[in-house]
Every structure is written in C-alpha cells, then in structure tokens.
Amino acid sequence: MNKTVNQKAWFLVLPVLLLVAFSAVIPLMTVVNYSVQDAFAGDFYPLDDKLEWFKQMLESERMWDALGRQVAFSAIILAIEIPLGIFVALNMPKKGFWASLCLVLMSLPLLIPWNVVGTIWQIFGRVDIGLLGYTLAALGIDYNYTQDFYAAWVTVIIMDVWHWTSLVALLAYAGLQSIPDAYYQAAKIDQASRWKVFRYIELPKMMGVLMIAILLRFMDSFMIYTEPFVVTGGGPGNSTTFLSIDLVKMALGQFDLGPAAAFSIMYYLVILLISYVFYTVMTNLDKRDGH
C-alpha cells in the first residue's frame, strides 16, 4: 500500500514514544551511568579510566565463557527447532477438526509461564519422581541433570525444543497455508518430486515467516533466563550459566554494578547488531514479495 506523507502522524505515535521512552530510555541511561562510574553505597565516584569496567569485562574469562555457552546454546536450539518445526508443519492436517485440535494442543507450551516450564522439566527429569528420569534410570542410563554436564545440557536443550518448536511450526504452517493450489497442480503436471515441490515451491513461500521464526527464536534464546535457572540454577558448576543468568548473578547477587552495567551494554549491543541484520533481510524479503 502506498502511504501518504503526513508529518502530523507523529502525534498519533507520541503516546507510544513517551511510554516506551519512560520504560526503556531512563533505565538504559541508568545502566550507562553505572558503566562509566564507580557506584558504592548509593554514591557515584568518577573512574580514573572511564572505560575501566568495559576493559575489565572484555578481559574477563567469565564473560567470554558465558558468551561461548550462549552462542552454542542458541546455535543448537536453532539447528533443531527450525528443521523440526518445518517438518511438523508439513505433517499437520490442512483443515477441519484435526487441524484445530493440533493448533490448540501445539500452542499449549507457549502459554505456560516460563518458570512453570522450568518446574515441569525439573520434575519430569528427576530420577526419583519424574517420568523421564525414572525411565532413563530404569533403562540403566546414568542421568542426573544436577551433577552431570551432558545431562544438564541435554535437559535444557530438550526443554527449549519442547517449549518453542511449536512456534516455528505454527509460523511455517501459516506460510504453507498461503500457497495457492495452482502451484501444486502445476508441479503435479510437471511430475515434480516431493523434494522438488518442497525446495522450489514450499520453501521459498515460507522464507518470510521462517525469517521471523529465526529472528524470534534467536532473540529469545539469547535472552533465556528463567527456564534453565529453575532447572539447573546455571550448574553443574557454571556449565549452563548463560549470559542472562550470569548477568543477574553479577548485578543482583554480587552487586558488582559497574562491571555488570558494562556487561549489559555489550550484551545488548550484540543482540541489536545480530537482530538488525535479520531485520534488514526480513524487510528486504517483504519488499520483494510486494507487501
């Protein structure tokens, strides 16, 4: 749709601007403030080197380790959830009662409070009272997510797959629904194989929604806090301490405000940068499709 140029539209946007500025800009400036000063007992003292906290954080092994774990986590869950979500969407019923039922049941995990998601898996994986843990133990598999590195990672990843694959599937499903029947008929006349139908008809048509799915899953997995915190508390050791868990530990636990603030800013910038790339790709795809 071609839009009219109208500068007065700013007045309609003003309430949003004020509200979001209040809840985003003021806190963000507080963070910036902390990151370049030494806060102690409510007073601020100037730092000799304004960037001291940033330098300290850049040299800190702890932050790089947390970042490494975070990148690994996001990469793994994207690598599982995106193909699995597409696969599920391809297998969903097209219409009618079964389609509705699938949609409702699949959406269920998305609406569970995040700490309850954690609680569910915490219980489910326990060797004494959880179905999963008990079954694995009965099969003779040594599984203990509070003490074993691999078990903790597998649990946290399966939990995320459980929690969010439906989102990818729902989006892919919506993309598939928008493909006109004529495309499939043409493919049938050409005797295209199932793979070719997927590769040349379904995948390109799903590209737009898949970009959104990747963007959302990347952002949210990069900020993940509550679920792994409830299940593993960041352990065993630091093995599932992702960026947000580490940050909260530093800021609210140890009250190292300066370094935590510097950490926050770099963390935010990384997310912004990567999301900007996705966003640009997304809007370009939008334009190409003529929205």
Binding site: P27, F222, Y268, I271, S275, Y279
Partner: peptide, 23 residues
C-alpha cells in the same frame, strides 16, 4: 522509529531488572 520499537522487544529483561528496580 519502528526499528527502535523493535529493539525494545529484543532488550534482555536481565539488563533492565536492576534499573527498573531503582526507577
């Protein structure tokens, strides 16, 4: 403006927890 709004959807709550508390 639109992208700036989106950036707030991307902001990690952990970054904002302490400043919100103080604000």
């Amino acid at each position: 403006l639109f992208f700036w709004l989106l950036t707030n959807r991307m902001a990690p709550p952990a970054v904002f927890a302490l400043p919100f508390f103080q604000l």
